[in-house]
Structures are given as structure tokens and as C-alpha cells.
């Protein structure tokens, strides 16, 4: 039951991404290409998603616990560090090169297109590479 509900939530997200244009690199890149073939559609994706989530979270987070877990798992950090800003900027560079972000690419995998598969493999490799570098950095800091 819990897993089926989770599957359906993923499905709603996947359909949303598919309709929105976020799974289409041409559309994503055009959103940022204000001085070229500009297509402002994607501002409506973020606008719609943020407004619905903002309202929904107000209702949901008033509860003492979620329906299928004992506690909410919310990020608690509020500090701004170089890792956050720099990492996000690096993400932006990759997004601007490839036109896929993780939330757009994962549902797009369902189209079976080779471009999406190649991007996703590289994405996972990048995640592993960064975790390896982070662990090595932490080990160095611990031994110093």
C-alpha cells in the first residue's frame, strides 16, 4: 500500500514533467536563451509548482506526522556556504550544456531515448564522483 501510493506520487510527478516541457532540452535551453530563440513557457512550470507546493505544505506541515511515516524528514540547515552556492552554479553550467536537469531526465527515461539514457548514466557517474571527492576530503580532514 505504502509502495503503491509512492509509485502513484512518482507517476503524477512524471506526467507533470512530461506535460510541462521540462523533459525537453530544446525547450529548457530556449527558456534561458533570452537573446535567441526565447520560449518563456517554463516560468509557468516553476510558478505553478511552487504556488501549489507552498499552499499544500502549509496544510500538511501543520500535522504532527505524515500519514505513512512516524516523522517528517525535513532539511534543517539554514546557513549559506560556498559549497551550496558553488555546487549550484556548477549544476547550472551542466544544465546549460546538456539541457536536462535530474527531475527532467528521470521521467524522460521512460521515452527510451538514447540521449536521455546517456545523460542519466553520466549524471549518476557525476554523483558518485562528487561523493568520492567529498569522502576523500572528509578523510583527509579527519587525519590532519
Amino acid at each position: 500500500m505504502r509502495l503503491f501510493a509512492t509509485y502513484l506520487i512518482g507517476l503524477i510527478f512524471g506526467v507533470g514533467i512530461s506535460i510541462s516541457g521540462m523533459a525537453n532540452p530544446a525547450k529548457v535551453l530556449n527558456f534561458f536563451d533570452v537573446f535567441g530563440t526565447w520560449d518563456p513557457s517554463l516560468i509557468f512550470v516553476m510558478g505553478g509548482a511552487v504556488v501549489v507546493t507552498f499552499i499544500g505544505y502549509r496544510l500538511v506541515l501543520g500535522r504532527s506526522a505524515p500519514l505513512m511515516d512516524t516523522t517528517f524528514h525535513l532539511p534543517t540547515r539554514r546557513d549559506l556556504d560556498l559549497r551550496l552556492i558553488g555546487g549550484s552554479a556548477v549544476f547550472g553550467v551542466g544544465w546549460g550544456i546538456a539541457g536536462f536537469c535530474p527531475g527532467g531526465a528521470l521521467p524522460a527515461l521512460g521515452t527510451g531515448r538514447m540521449e536521455v539514457i546517456v545523460f542519466t548514466i553520466a549524471l549518476v557517474a557525476g554523483i558518485f564522483l562528487a561523493k568520492f571527492l567529498q569522502n576523500r576530503g572528509a578523510a583527509k580532514a579527519a587525519s590532519a
Binding site: G86, V90, G99, R113, E115, A122, A125
Partner: peptide, 24 residues
């Protein structure tokens, strides 16, 4: 799904995205 990006650029972009989102 229209991909106006070459395979090498998809690989490089994907790798960079993976590193960036992990640090960010």
C-alpha cells in the same frame, strides 16, 4: 523530447550536473 545537444556534450553536461547537485 528534442535534443539539440551532441552525445559528448550530453556526457560532459551530465557529469557536471551530477557533481554540482551533489555539492549543492
Amino acid at each position: 523530447v528534442q535534443v539539440p545537444v551532441s552525445y559528448p556534450m550530453l556526457m560532459i553536461g551530465g557529469l557536471i550536473v551530477g557533481v554540482g547537485v551533489t555539492y549543492g
